[in-house]
């Protein structure tokens, strides 16, 4: 449970950092969530939680409807965890 709460706060600060510091440089939050999906073990749900919360914060600080970034990130996380990871071996990363 602790890791979910820590993740929630980290994502919140990451989105604030994104929108006020990095601005248009690149979407750090998006890439952190995608990168996490690649690193995480298949049985863990944290990547989906990150996609949900990260997407929600991105939606709050953007002009899209609430759910736009959530759907994109959840879809990508699903594709990475269930379609790419079982078939692609990434060095130094456990399946």
């Amino acid at each position: 449970m602790i890791k979910y709460i820590i993740s929630l706060f980290l994502l919140y600060f990451l989105v604030l950092f994104q929108t006020s510091f990095l601005v248009d440089l690149f979407n750090l939050t998006f890439w952190v969530i995608i990168f996490w999906s690649f690193l995480e073990k298949k049985e863990s749900d944290l990547a989906f939680f990150n996609a949900l919360i990260g997407g929600f914060f991105l939606d709050i600080f953007s002009n899209n409807f609430i759910g736009f970034n959530i759907i994109i990130l959840l879809t990508l996380t699903f594709l990475i965890k269930y379609l790419i990871r079982p078939h692609v071996k990434i060095p130094y990363v456990e399946r």
């Binding site: 604030l16 929108t19 006020s20 601005v23 248009d24 600080f61 953007s62 002009n63």
Partner: peptide, 10 residues
């Protein structure tokens, strides 16, 4: 100014 996203400011 608090933040900027694309061509929008907060």
């Amino acid at each position: 100014i608090l933040s900027r996203k694309n061509n929008y400011l907060l």
